[in-house]
Simulated scan of single mutants.
Amino acid sequence: MEELKLHGFWPSSYSSRVTWALKLKGVEYEYIEENLSNKSELLLKYNPVHKKIPVLVHGGKPIAESLVILEYIEETWPKNPLLPTHAYDRAIARFWIQYGAAKGPFFFSVFRSSGEEQEKAAKEVLAVLKVLEEQGLGDKKFFGGDTINLVDIAYGWLPHWFETIQEVIGIKLLESTTCPRLYAWVNNFKEVPVIKENLPDPEKLLAHIKNIREKLVAEKTD
């Protein structure tokens, strides 16, 4: 087997996506923790365009961007598939993955803003969550049906990272009263063994996100 390495960063949900996929596939790899304040020469070499994590290096060849990496993992290790068999179902899965990627800026906006701007962003985020619940998840336990697939993994930041963001900003959007089916999915997702065993420490993550929020607020007041 060719050497496989993952360059990541412990609080990053993008890194976790890749970790979950590799572990669900049963693929062995070496994890390399990056310091994003002092990026390694290897990271800059492997991802010279964006200079970001995660980067998966397979046989010396780097693949960057988490969603691209997930597709690469699915194609390279077809055992334990994470996309549906039927072409139409795969297309629908990819649609919802792209929907989440396109709506990501709304979630960041509610995190970095305050006052009326934050209230507006919060309404936009709630609208996105409701579309995701009603049109994407529906009555299924997971986006993948009875088991998780790449869509669940792509939205895997909601159950842990977004929960922590809500705590930091003091706004509750993804709740049992607002999005009951999506809220149930959150709890089901966190109980999947591979997910549960590969989440960052909640207290460390809370401190990390608080620190980011404080820096954003300071920048706006300078």
Rank of each mutant, 00 (worst) to 15 (best):
M1A: 13
E2H: 04
L6R: 04
W10F: 13
W10H: 08
P11A: 15
P11T: 14
Y14E: 04
L22Y: 06
K23H: 05
G26H: 05
V27M: 01
E28N: 12
Y31Q: 02
I32H: 13
I32T: 11
E33F: 05
N35T: 07
N35Q: 05
K39G: 04
E41T: 13
L42S: 11
Y46T: 12
K52L: 06
P54W: 15
V57N: 14
G59P: 00
G59W: 01
K61C: 01
K61S: 04
I63F: 04
A64S: 14
E65D: 04
I69H: 01
Y72V: 06
I73N: 00
E75M: 11
P81H: 02
P84Y: 15
P84I: 13
H86Q: 12
H86Y: 09
Y88G: 12
D89K: 13
R90F: 08
A91Q: 01
A91R: 00
A91F: 00
A93E: 00
F95E: 08
W96C: 13
Q98R: 13
Y99D: 05
G100T: 13
A101H: 09
K103G: 08
G104A: 10
G104Y: 07
G104W: 01
P105S: 10
F107V: 11
F107H: 06
F108P: 03
V110I: 14
S113K: 12
S114L: 11
S114R: 11
E117M: 01
Q118A: 11
E119P: 00
K120P: 03
A121N: 01
A121F: 01
K123Y: 06
V125C: 14
V125S: 06
V128R: 07
V128N: 13
V131F: 03
Q135C: 12
F143Q: 14
D146N: 08
D146S: 11
T147N: 10
T147F: 07
N149H: 08
N149R: 05
V151Y: 10
V151I: 06
I153L: 01
A154H: 00
Y155I: 11
G156T: 13
P159M: 00
T164Y: 08
T164A: 09
Q166R: 06
K172N: 12
K172A: 10
L173E: 06
L174E: 07
L182W: 14
N188Q: 07
V194D: 02
K196H: 10
K196R: 14
N198W: 10
A207F: 00
A207N: 11
I209A: 12
L216R: 09
A218F: 01
A218V: 02
T221N: 04
D222T: 10
D222M: 08
D222V: 09
D222I: 06
